[in-house]
């Protein structure tokens, strides 16, 4: 399960919308747990993919700086997010081929209809994503 603060959840959707036809990406921060994480912050990063309409690559230096910022603030990495401007709502084959953080959440905001936010934990031993429940905290 992954639990979002209202503002963090909305931020993922806003950023995905603002990305237009290009994928956006970022790091989710808060409290990590193998079964129940909580997201309180989003940290957007530049998508440096050559074809950002269908691919995303987080700039490595920026990714490292974001992770250091999160850890220096006493927070934890919960996972990562990106958008699928034209769908699908679930991870693509490319997402599975390139996943590298087992047990962390990979959140996708799909915009092929009304925004749909889904989350999956990467299970490296099974080489598969496992969908998890998303909860949103009420203010």
């Amino acid at each position: 399960m992954i639990q979002f603060s209202r503002s963090a959840y909305d931020e993922v959707v806003y950023q995905a919308y603002n990305g237009g036809d290009e994928e956006i990406c970022g790091v989710l921060a808060g409290e990590y747990d193998a079964d129940h994480s909580r997201v309180t912050e989003t940290h957007v990063a530049e998508n440096v993919a050559e074809t950002p309409q269908t691919r995303y690559v987080m700039d490595p230096e920026e990714q490292f700086e974001i992770i250091e910022t999160i850890e220096d603030a006493g927070s934890e990495i919960v996972g990562f997010y990106h958008s699928h401007p034209a769908g699908p709502t679930n991870p693509s084959e490319t997402d599975a081929d390139r996943a590298t953080w087992p047990k962390y959440s990979y959140v996708i905001c799909a915009l092929d209809g009304y925004p749909f936010v889904g989350s999956w934990r990467w299970r490296a031993d099974e080489e598969a994503f496992e969908q998890e429940t998303i909860a949103i905290e009420q203010n």
Binding site: A45, R55, M58, H82, S92, T94, R98, W101, Y106
Partner: peptide
Amino acid sequence: VTVLRLIKGG
């Protein structure tokens, strides 16, 4: 050195 697992996909 630091090894950073890349975040990328489609």
